[in-house]
Design a protein around this nucleic acid. Structure first.
Length: 811
DNA sequence: AGCGCGCTCCTTTTT
DNA sequence: GGAGCGCGCT
């Protein structure tokens, strides 16, 4: 057999006995004999951690040697396998807790695993030092060997916000027009390179050309240099610097390879290239790598995840054992049938078919709403009906494609007095007040943290403006000193205006004083003192805006959270990487979240609104990633359906306001891809008789409910098609062959409101005062004309802005 | 230093 | 439609 070339993963040398087999394995000399004893015990006693596993799960748990890929479909007991496997390794004496590397993507997943392991094997589970996220483990390793990659071990971790501010400074210094080349685009670009493990030298010059006339690579390099002088890393560096550390220091790598007898990876389908390389390096020692994942649930391609990693596993790791978990313990037969049929349309997959021994249950329902408002009303009504039947709100969730869809549901739930909870949104440590407070703590504990200094330097307002900051930079840069140091020097000179000088002096002296208290004052008390004395809490107390009180609460919460940590450094570490908004689990509420946010969760009833072309699948994904994008969207649909235990309810609306303009929409192709046998089309009980009036073209099974004449026969629609033929075709990337947008009477699905609304300079055929008819709003008269956008005073619906192509003359 | 206007953009999101 | 941002005016 051909073994793929791999410098890191040597093929086993023939003739040598496998040093890692069970028989040959001996504990290192320093190890107490406990391992052997435990193994003996495990042999004589039925293992608790192996109970309740089905045969495939058991195989996944017990196949300890060599690379293993566990393809775990949704709801097949993935976490159970991971935790049982760790318990098994420990209980059988094959490794101690400190010799198992176990990586997850989110802190939540890591926490959950720790809890479940502890439940299986007792308190030993809590002591798993190498169970954590890629980033937290990367940080741990990097802190130990920071000096080898040009950092000090107290390096700071910058988040996206810091990163962008830093890039802005670089762009400014390089005289690059930030309007044309926004820092966040560059940040995105750099992130992308880091995801692919590309250092500035490795970025191809072609790719470097994408930003600021080919200066991207140079800017990336400047950024990295600046990070080093700041003794800082960004999230991407946490892994990239690890890889560099390992590659440049084989002894360090060997040490970790030796240490990690077993490596486990959760959600392998979400790994990016950097994570993959990192794993490969570490796994090359004992070769006991177990990756668990589901290619059908890979939904993070847009942020660097490589489905390819999982698809290629067997090639990458020769001799890998692949185990499929297809027995589903979550959903009913109809839900699995619908989801399975849908995902089977994807081509790039390893192939799994979930099955259940449970009941068929209710069919997946599909309902049509007239517009998004009615959609929200239908969902709310259904929720209330379920509630009356005794179902808890806790067991229901609304999963949307994009967060702008949430608002309509929130509004509806408020009017219906349905308690709800929005999951997602800004994290605790992303809030401005938390970031400000942290910046104070950072500058006090790390005087070289220029970004922290800049953030708090005039917050609260203390009469220090750009002039002062520029003066500080002008001194700091050539002298290669931190801004705080520059400030110390300049307050003794005339460089700073006499008005600002005392203020700056006060700030600098405060910082020094606070810093001198670090050793002697409990850190949470120090934090409180800093926030008080700096005037920061006062700033919010004086603030009259509605959210000021909430911000003060958050600051209190921050100080409270600090008490749980030994010292300031430990806390800062935690907050950058881990800290989450504390969420009170009080009363039962319906959850509203994005499909992405729902991964890994399950609910009795799942509402899936907005299944319309353009929204889901997202037009933009289709435009940008073509076929691959469509498949990722389909996986997202699959994830959504498989969250449901007993009921999945889909909705689509025929009208939706996108970017402020009303658009006609057609059902998602995913609706058509569902197998009829598992699906039931329900009549909307819509008060406006929506099912009668709705209209959409095309060879959909839903034609039978489409009784009215298709709205696409309207003159407005025809005009729009004509306009498109004439050259206003919305930008569309390569489409998958065989599925043409305009084929088979299925009208072009143009959701690109922006293109439509802005590309046409041609004069409208309508004038002020003209009478028009709109399929949603009925008759009205034109109040204003702007290109092809009309502001119309509708007789019933009031003033709305609509696209010209959606109205017809007369009426 | 603070406000207001006009311009742009507008999926998903962890660390 | 609406949020966020930068600039320019007072």
């Amino acid at each position: 057999m051909m073994v793929p070339k791999s410098p890191i993963w040597p093929a086993k040398e023939p003739g040598l006995s496998d040093p890692f087999s069970l028989d040959e394995w001996t504990p290192p000399p320093a190890r107490p004999a406990g391992g052997i004893a435990a193994r003996a015990m495990a042999a004589s006693r039925p293992a608790v951690h192996l109970q309740g596993l089905n045969p495939e799960q058991q195989r996944a748990v017990e196949t300890l040697d060599g690379p293993v890929l566990v393809l775990a479909g949704a709801g097949t007991g993935k976490t159970k396998v991971l935790t049982s496997r760790i318990a098994h390794i420990i209980a059988s004496g094959r490794a101690r807790t400190g010799e198992i590397l176990s990586v997850t993507f989110t802190n939540k997943a890591a926490r959950e695993m720790k809890e479940r392991i502890t439940a299986l094997i007792g308190a030993v589970g809590e002591g798993m030092p190498w169970l954590g996220t890629f980033h937290s483990i990367g940080t741990k390793i990097l802190r130990r060997h920071a000096e080898l990659v040009g950092l000090r071990s107290d390096f700071t971790i910058l988040d996206t916000d810091d990163q962008i501010r830093l890039l802005k400074q670089i762009l400014q210094a390089e005289n690059i027009d930030e309007k044309r080349w926004p820092a966040r685009i560059l940040a995105f670009q750099i992130d992308g390179w880091k995801n692919r493990a590309l250092t500035p030298e490795k970025v191809s010059s072609g790719e470097g050309h994408v930003f600021a006339e080919g200066r991207a690579r140079e800017l990336y390099k400047l950024y990295q240099e600046r990070l080093k002088t700041l003794n800082a890393v960004d999230f991407g560096d946490l892994l990239l610097e690890n890889i560099r550390l390992f590659q440049e220091n084989p002894d360090v790598l060997a040490d970790f390879q030796q240490r990690f007898r077993f490596i486990l990876v959760d959600e392998y389908q979400d790994t990016n290239v950097a994570q993959y390389l990192w794993l490969r390096l570490l796994a090359a020692g004992h070769r006991n790598l177990c990756c668990v994942g589901d290619d059908d649930q890979s939904i993070y391609g847009w942020r660097g995840a490589e489905v390819d990693n999982i698809l290629r596993f067997e090639k990458d790791f020769p001799g890998a054992v692949v185990i499929r978990l297809e027995r589903n313990y979550r959903s009913t037969g109809h839900i699995l049938g619908a989801a399975g049929h849908l995902i089977a349309k994807n081509e790039g997959r390893l192939g799994k078919t979930l099955f259940t021994d449970g009941e068929e249950g209710e069919r997946v329902t599909v309902a049509c709403a007239w517009d998004s408002e009615e959609e929200a009303r239908m969902v709310a009504d259904e929720i209330e009906a379920l509630q009356h039947k005794g179902h808890s709100l806790q067991d229901m969730a609304i999963l949307v494609r994009a967060s702008f869809q949430m608002r309509e549901f929130e509004e509806r739930f408020i009017t219906n007095a349905i308690p709800y909870r929005v999951i997602g949104g800004p994290r605790f440590y992303e809030r401005a007040e938390i970031r400000d407070a942290l910046a104070y703590l950072r500058i006090v504990s790390q005087p070289a943290d220029d970004l922290a200094f800049e953030r708090i330097f005039n917050t609260p307002k203390r009469g220090l403006g750009d002039a002062v900051l520029n003066a500080l930079h002008a001194y700091a840069r050539p002298n290669r000193v931190p801004l705080l140091q520059a400030a110390r020097v300049l307050i003794e000179s005339d460089e700073i205006s006499s008005r600002a000088r005392p203020n700056l002096r006060a700030l600098v002296e405060n910082i020094s004083r606070w810093a001198s208290l670090i050793e002697t004052t409990p850190h949470h008390e120090l934090a409180e003192m800093i926030l008080e004395e700096s005037g920061y809490t006062d700033m919010w107390k004086k603030d009259r805006s509605a959210d000021a009180a909430g911000r003060l609460d958050n600051l209190k919460e921050l100080v409270r959270a600090m008490e749980e940590f030994e010292n300031l450094a430990g806390f800062l570490e935690h907050v950058g990487l881990v800290m989450e908004k504390s969420q009170g689990e009080d009363e039962a509420r319906v959850s509203i979240m994005t499909l992405h946010g729902a991964k890994g969760l399950e609910f009795e009833t799942v509402f899936l609104p907005g299944w319309e072309e353009g929204l889901f699948p997202s037009q933009r994904t289709l435009d940008e990633q073509g076929r691959a994008g469509l498949e990722e969207e389909r996986r997202l649909a699959y994830v959504g359906l498989t969250r449901a235990k007993r009921r999945a309810k889909l909705y689509f609306a025929t009208n939706r306001r996108i970017h402020g303009l009303w658009q006609s929409t057609v059902p998602s192709r995913f609706v058509d891809e569902l197998p009829p046998g598992h699906v039931e089309v329900v009549e909307g009980q819509g008060t406006y008789g929506s099912m009668q009036r709705m209209g959409y073209a095309g060879g959909s099974r839903f034609d039978k409910v489409n009784t009215a004449a298709s709205s696409y026969q309207t003159p407005g629609w025809q005009r729009m098609q004509a306009a498109q033929k004439a050259g206003f075709t919305p930008s569309r990337a390569p489409q998958e062959p065989g599925r043409s947008w305009s084929a088979g009477g299925s009208s072009p699905r143009t959701i690109e409101g922006r293109v439509l609304a802005s590309s046409t300079v041609q004069s409208s055929r309508y004038r002020q005062g003209d009478r028009v008819f709109h399929i949603k709003f009925g008759p009205g008269s034109v109040a204003e004309v702007d290109g092809n956008k009309l502001t119309v005073d509708f007789d019933k619906a009031g003033r709305k802005m609509v696209l010209e192509s959606f109205v017809q003359a007369g009426a």
